[in-house]
C-alpha cells in the first residue's frame, strides 16, 4: 500500500458514517472507497446495499401494517413508506419496533395528516402488535367465583393480564380495519363527538383479540386497575348505573373478564 493511499484511507468511523450516509441520504461518497473489479460497477455494488436497506424496512411496514396499506392504496402507501423510512430511521436492535413512530408520522405529515383516520388505524395496528408479544401471566378461571367467601366480596381486588390495553379513537378506524380484514370495502371515514373505546388483549389461545367497550365497563376497569376494591368500584358506579343493578352489572363484567383471560390474580384479604 502506498503512502498516498494510506493518507486517503478513511478511519473505520469515517467509513461507517459514509456507509450510513449512502443508506439514508444516497450520499455516493463511499463509491470512491470501493475496489473496482469484475462485471459490476461501483455504482451497482453500493446500490445493492442502498436498495436492500429500503426493501428490508418496507417489508417490515408491509407486514405490520397490512390493512393500512390496503386502505391507502399502492401510490399513497409507497409515498408513506418512503417518507417514513427517511423520517424515522430504526433506532432499535429489533425490526419489531421500527414502525412504532408511524402513527406520529401520519399525524404530523401531509397529506396523511389531513386524514386523521390513518394515524388512528396505524395506532390500532401497533396496539395489536404490542398485545401479541407482551408479557405472559397465568389467568384465573370462572371457578374463582366459587372460592370467594360471601362476606369478602367488598374487599375483592384484581390484577389484570399484562397484554390488556385500551385503545381510544375518534374515527371509525377499527371498523374500517375490520372491513379490510374481511376483504370488504371500508366505510367512509367518519368521526364521532365522543371517542370510542376498545379493549385489546392476547386471548387464551395466544391470538390477539379486541372488542369495543361501553363507558361503564371502561370506568370499572379504570378504577379496578388502580387497585380499588369491589366496594369502592360499586360506589364509583353510582353515577352510571342505578344502585340495585350495580352488583349484577359488576358480576357480569367479572364473568366476562375471566372468560376472556383478563384476570391473573384476585385478592380478598384486604
Amino acid at each position: 500500500m502506498s503512502n498516498n493511499k494510506q493518507q486517503l484511507a478513511p478511519s473505520l468511523a469515517e467509513l461507517q458514517q459514509e456507509f450510513m450516509s449512502l443508506l439514508q441520504t444516497n450520499d455516493r461518497h463511499i463509491e470512491l472507497r470501493v475496489i473496482q473489479q469484475g462485471l459490476l460497477t461501483n455504482v451497482q455494488r453500493v446500490d445493492i446495499y442502498r436498495t436492500g436497506y429500503r426493501l428490508r424496512l418496507r417489508g417490515v411496514i408491509d407486514s405490520d401494517h397490512e390493512m393500512l396499506g390496503i386502505y391507502l392504496g399502492d401510490d399513497l402507501y409507497a409515498q408513506m413508506v418512503e417518507g417514513y423510512i427517511d423520517a424515522a430511521p430504526s433506532q432499535h436492535p429489533s425490526l419489531r419496533f421500527f414502525g412504532d413512530r408511524l402513527p406520529e408520522y401520519l399525524e404530523n405529515t401531509a397529506p396523511f395528516s389531513d386524514h386523521p383516520i390513518l394515524a388512528e388505524m396505524a395506532s390500532f395496528e401497533r396496539t395489536l402488535l404490542n398485545a401479541f408479544d407482551s408479557a405472559d401471566a397465568d389467568t384465573l378461571s370462572l371457578s374463582l367465583l366459587q372460592q370467594i367467601p360471601a362476606d369478602k366480596w367488598p374487599l375483592l381486588t384484581f390484577s389484570f393480564h399484562p397484554s390488556l390495553t385500551f385503545y381510544e379513537c375518534q374515527w371509525n378506524a377499527v371498523e374500517s380495519w375490520q372491513c379490510l380484514k374481511n376483504a370488504e370495502p371500508p366505510p367512509a371515514p367518519t368521526a364521532t363527538a365522543q371517542s370510542k373505546m376498545w379493549a385489546v388483549w392476547r386471548g387464551l389461545s395466544k391470538l390477539t383479540e379486541y372488542k369495543s367497550m361501553l363507558a361503564t365497563e371502561r370506568e370499572v376497569l379504570r378504577v379496578m386497575q388502580q387497585g380499588k376494591n369491589f366496594a369502592e368500584v360499586c360506589e364509583s358506579l353510582l353515577e352510571h348505573v342505578c344502585e340495585e343493578q350495580i352488583a349484577a352489572t359488576l358480576y357480569g363484567f367479572i364473568v366476562e373478564w375471566l372468560q376472556r383471560g383478563w384476570i391473573v390474580d384476585a385478592n380478598w384479604d384486604g
Partner: peptide
C-alpha cells in the same frame, strides 16, 4: 452507525 440501525450486515474493511 450513530445510533441508527441499518438492519443489514455491513462489511468491515480488512485492516
Amino acid at each position: 452507525v450513530g445510533g441508527i440501525n441499518s438492519h443489514d450486515l455491513l462489511p468491515m474493511p480488512y485492516t
